[in-house]
């Protein structure tokens, strides 16, 4: 862990005084500790998915050979396929609809702004303060009235429109050059077409950032699906693994495997879109 030599592009770095070098070394030690603490539990999770319950409880840090047995005991009593399907369906549907609804609203608030629309924006922002717990019971009754318990709609609808996403897209619309809109209008493009053909392609990083946040929130959502998805056939992955510890005997190997499977989609999405993610929140248009 040294930082003594640096690339030739930065000739000055090689001449750092001792103090700076120590500071630099300290920085790498610090980062290493943070990285270890960060990855440690995940490593344990991955390794445990291949171990027997005894090995998991003995805190074995070496990969075992029990992966297939764990998979078998996991799928023996749990319908993992169905839970993955419902989790994916809920998360993808939420993400796609949220991106469409919130981006067009964010764009609308910025590009066609008027005092009344600004006022509406303020009111919508107030919703950010509403804790979910406060709306849960009436929301449940609302969906029950419409016969939507156990439906994908019941999980998706409350998660589509969020103040945070509208705000994010409004900010990105603010950095979108209005000259482009004017030029497009002169070319006779319809307003809707301007949004889809000009704004959407330019704002890919923002969409990526919004997609990551929304997908992860939707995938990880636990309390609301737990309340609204009454029929066990509709249970999602987080519900499945939470119920795992409710049985009389816990198979830790299988539990860790289930935990790993639950985490994989979000990890993949996150890292595929990681770069655009930071860029999206930066709001820089490239």
């Amino acid at each position: 862990m040294t930082d003594v030599t640096t690339t030739s592009a930065r000739p000055k770095a090689g001449e750092k005084p001792l103090g700076a070098r120590l500071r630099s070394a300290g920085k790498y030690v610090f980062l290493s500790i943070v990285a270890l603490l960060s990855i440690g539990p995940l490593y344990f999770m991955v390794v445990s998915a291949t171990n027997t319950t005894q090995d998991v409880l003995a805190s074995s840090m070496l990969p075992g050979s029990n992966l297939i047995a764990n998979w078998q005991s996991l799928t023996e009593f749990q319908d993992v396929g169905s839970a993955m399907y419902h989790s994916t369906l809920n998360a993808v549907a939420t993400t796609v609809l949220a991106l469409v609804v919130c981006s067009i609203a964010g764009y609308g608030f910025e590009v066609y702004h008027s005092p009344n629309k600004d006022r509406l924006m303020w009111v919508l922002m107030l919703a950010m303060m509403i804790p979910f717990a406060a709306t849960m019971i009436p929301l449940f009754q609302l969906f029950a009235d419409f016969g939507l318990i156990n439906s994908t709609w019941a999980v998706v609808l409350p998660a589509i429109s969020t103040p945070l996403l509208i705000l994010l897209f409004r900010q990105s619309a603010r950095s979108f050059p209005h000259e482009i809109i004017e030029a497009a209008r002169i070319d006779g493009l319809k307003e809707v077409s301007i949004f889809f053909r000009m704004f959407v392609p330019t704002m890919k990083p923002t969409y990526a950032a919004a997609a990551v946040i929304t997908f992860m929130t939707a995938w990880n959502n636990f309390l609301w699906p737990k309340v609204i998805l009454v029929n066990p056939d509709y249970q999602t992955m987080p519900m499945l693994i939470s119920n795992f510890t409710g049985g009389y005997v816990v198979d830790y190997g299988a539990l860790m495997l289930a935990v790993l499977i639950t985490s994989l989609p979000t990890i993949i999405i996150f890292f595929v879109l990681q770069r655009s993610f930071v860029a999206g929140f930066t709001g820089v248009v490239k």
Binding site: F140, Q141, A144, V227, V230
Partner: peptide
């Protein structure tokens, strides 16, 4: 509880 509460 939820089913009873919502009369479902």
């Amino acid at each position: 509880t939820t089913l009873a509460q919502s009369q479902e």
